[in-house]
Design a protein around this nucleic acid. Structure first.
Length: 319
DNA sequence: GGATATACTTGTCCCACCGT
DNA sequence: ACGGTGGGACAAGTATATCC
């Protein structure tokens, strides 16, 4: 496997009104390391980019990133040239590892902004080492900073942080501490390019849950009417399961549902609404749960009803 | 039809954390 | 400052019901 650990540094506008449409963040450095099957670093890539949209460092970027604008102007090359070099360096069928879920998205956004064809595979699977670390060393939800994890693992601080190639190397160090068997099935999906049609829709089955990424729809209502989105399937046996309630939303970003598989028991569903150029696409996850988990979802679904009834009761008492 | 009251939906704002 | 996650609280806007 051609494993590439990627890290970027980027800059942004001083104020929102000075933001260039389509480019919130401008990449100023690409760094990467290549890992062999044992997790050892075999090669590295480092390239500064001369920015042409935001030519002044935003103060927070200046505080965090160890690069000056002078340095970028003197040593940096145009983004597309850097990207070309990087892509060549990556080689055949690269598999990407990052710290966090933003780097591949922002890299593609820059590629689109500067008018290059998107070279990445579709769908773009990758490994988020920050997430993997949380799954196996934290609660699976919390996100730790790279530096804090290096400290926790008592790994040597050989280089400064917040330089792309060094952060990539550190990320590789963290990855090599994790058991490969445990993480190799835990791929993440990059959502920069959502599926364009039913054929491109993505369905993944993991040990503990399944994930479905829908095509684009005009509205969340239209999406929720689509069978692929609203259907509930037991990811353990693949059969359609009895829905125990209709999908309901607790706010405008998520829907919840509950079903029962005769062989595997309760299944809870969650659908996240993601926006993309005025359209929406849905990410559905299905997870096995127990009677207690099922009870919680039922309670949640009836929360609105309960409130309504309570209000009605209060009103009744008053009158 | 118009005005008002209520119920529900949708958007926005907070908090925490991470990334640049 | 911006991007993301996951909560929760609240207000503005929309839909429905009721009354004149």
């Amino acid at each position: 496997m051609n494993s590439i650990v990627l890290d970027l540094e980027w800059n942004q506008a001083q104020t929102r009104d000075r933001e260039a449409p389509g480019l919130t963040f401008e990449v100023i450095e690409i760094g990467a390391v290549r890992l062999d099957e044992h997790g050892n670093q075999t090669d590295s890539f480092s390239c500064l980019i001369r920015p042409c949209v935001y030519t002044e460092l935003f103060y927070r970027v200046r505080e965090v990133v160890g690069i000056s604008m002078k340095q970028l102007e003197a040593e940096g090359i145009p983004f597309l040239d850097a990207m070309e070099r990087f892509w060549k360096w990556c080689g055949k069928d690269p598999v990407f590892f990052t710290w966090g879920d933003m780097d591949l998205t922002e890299l593609q956004r820059n590629i689109a902004y500067f008018g290059r064809e998107n070279p990445f595979a579709f769908p773009l699977f990758y490994y988020d080492v920050q997430k993997l670390y949380s799954l196996y060393c934290l609660d699976g939800h919390a996100r730790a900073s790279l530096e804090s994890v290096i400290e926790t693992l008592a790994l040597p601080k050989k280089w400064p942080f917040h330089r792309a190639v060094y952060d990539a190397a550190y990320t590789g160090c963290v990855l090599s501490q994790l058991e490969k068997q445990s993480w190799q099935s835990m791929v993440s999906v990059d959502y920069y390019r959502p599926p364009k049609n039913a054929q491109e829709e993505i369905y993944l089955v993991f040990e503990r849950y399944s994930k479905f990424v829908s095509q684009l729809y005009q509205s969340r209502e239209e999406a929720m009417e689509a069978r692929n989105v609203s259907s509930m399937v037991c990811y353990k046996c693949g059969r359609n399961v009895t829905r125990r309630m209709n999908w309901f939303s607790d706010n405008n970003r998520k829907y919840f549902g509950l079903a029962y598989c005769p062989r595997h028991g309760w299944l809870k569903g969650k659908i996240r609404v993601k926006h993309c150029d005025g359209q929406v696409f849905m990410i559905k996850t299905m997870k096995l749960t127990d009677a207690e988990g099922a009870r919680k979802i039922k309670a949640k679904s009836e929360l609105m009803k309960k409130r309504r009834m309570e209000k009605a009761a209060e009103k009744g008492l008053r009158s």
